[in-house]
Amino acid sequence: MPLPFTQSEFFDVMAAYNRAVWPAQFALEFSAVAVVWLAFRRVASAGVWVSAILALLWTWTGVAYHWAFFAVINRAAWVFGSICLAGAVAFAWFGVARRRIKVSFKLGKRGLFGWVLIAFALVVYPALGVLVGHHYPASPTFGLPCPTTIFTVGVLLLTTPDTPRWVFVVPVIWSAIGASAAFLLGVYQDLGLVVSGLAAAWAMFSDVRSGPPELPASR
Rank of each mutant, 00 (worst) to 15 (best):
M1V: 15
P2I: 08
P2D: 11
L3Q: 11
Q7D: 13
F10Y: 14
N18R: 06
W22P: 03
Q25N: 07
L28E: 07
L28V: 02
F30E: 09
A34K: 10
V35I: 02
V36Q: 08
L38W: 04
F40R: 13
A46S: 13
G47F: 01
V48I: 13
Y65W: 14
H66Q: 14
H66A: 05
W67A: 05
A68W: 13
V72Y: 06
N74K: 02
A76W: 15
A77Q: 07
A77V: 00
W78Q: 07
V79S: 07
C84A: 15
L85Q: 08
A86M: 12
A88M: 06
V89A: 12
A90I: 04
F91Y: 12
A92D: 06
A92V: 02
W93M: 03
F94P: 04
V96K: 00
A97V: 14
R100K: 10
I101K: 08
V103P: 00
S104W: 09
G108P: 07
K109G: 13
V116Q: 09
L122S: 04
V123T: 09
A127S: 12
L128C: 05
G129L: 00
G133H: 09
H134F: 05
P137C: 03
P137M: 05
T141S: 12
L144E: 07
P147M: 03
T149N: 13
T152Q: 00
T152M: 06
G154I: 05
D162G: 04
D162Y: 01
V167A: 00
V172N: 04
W174Q: 07
F183W: 15
L184S: 09
L185M: 05
L185G: 04
Y188C: 06
L193D: 00
A199C: 12
A203E: 12
A203T: 09
D207W: 10
D207S: 15
P212M: 02
E214S: 10
S218D: 13
